[in-house]
Amino acid sequence: MNRSTLILYSDLEAVYRPERVWAEGRAVALVLAHFLSGAGAGAWLLGLLLDLRLVLAFGLAAVILGGIVHLAFLGHPERAWKMMMRPQSSWISRGLWSMVVFIPTAALYLAGAYGAWSTSSAFSIVMLVLSLLGMAGIFLYKGFVYAVSRAVPLWHSPLLPVTYIAIGLRGGAALALIGLAFVAPDTESHAGQTWWLAATAAMIFLFVLELAMGRSESTISRSLATLRQGSLAWIFFVGVVLLGIIIPAGLVIASYAASIGVAGLIVAGIASLVGDFAYKYCMNTAGTYVPLLQARAY
């Protein structure tokens, strides 16, 4: 009997059946795609706020890369255009529309920012507005793609879309730190660092709130137990807590007192991005279906 059959038979008898389709095998591509597009949208926003062209370029590149990686997850990537057919009900459709709007308009605005034409021209302003609409859609859709799944209580939370927006902003701030390392490592403003700290605080607050809200629900408790002490514990504590929060937080806070240099900013940015990817991987993998048999006299 091969592995997939053995896993299936084990799942068929599991009271708390783990969600596998968006967690295992090629699903890593899906996690990576969601991570990249979220960080890209965040970088686009922060690039505009901090007036950093390089960060805008990072943002656009991350969204494009996320779209390409997303294709690797699909069973039929050549049919991906068909995913635009149901924006009236499907958040995946809405997400694809957002990317389709964002990528060309952001590219055209960026071309202006690099001198192809004036960013204050009417054309550039229209491109900017459209790219911001696409960016907002990219921020929103990922959380809702998971949150609509009533079968997986860990995901079916009104907080999840907000958390994923915070993670997108955090990813953007991390890319901004990397961008700052190249263009202004010793800047006095610390705006990138402040955004990173704010987004990280929001992410932690939302996660703790989700823990508090879900701890009385048996399926969510089960999911959280796999994060805390199960097979995902080392990814969660090493990837999310140590790499994603503690190390970059230490560097970012230190940068307010003294310059941490190019290497410090890059390390903080990369560690934060690794933590965000690990968080999304953990959330996908910890998903557990609601049990089929509830308390009932059979």
């Binding site: 091969n2 799942d11 968006w22 049919r79 068909k82 995913m83």
Partner: peptide
């Protein structure tokens, strides 16, 4: 012919009724 294999339906189904066919293999390896 319309399915792209995104598997969103599988995560949405609480009855575990759906299967993704990654590749065809027989019963006698």
């Amino acid at each position: 012919d319309k399915c792209v294999g995104c598997r969103a339906c599988m995560t949405a189904c609480p009855y575990h009724a759906r299967y993704y066919l990654d590749h065809i293999r027989g019963y006698y390896p």
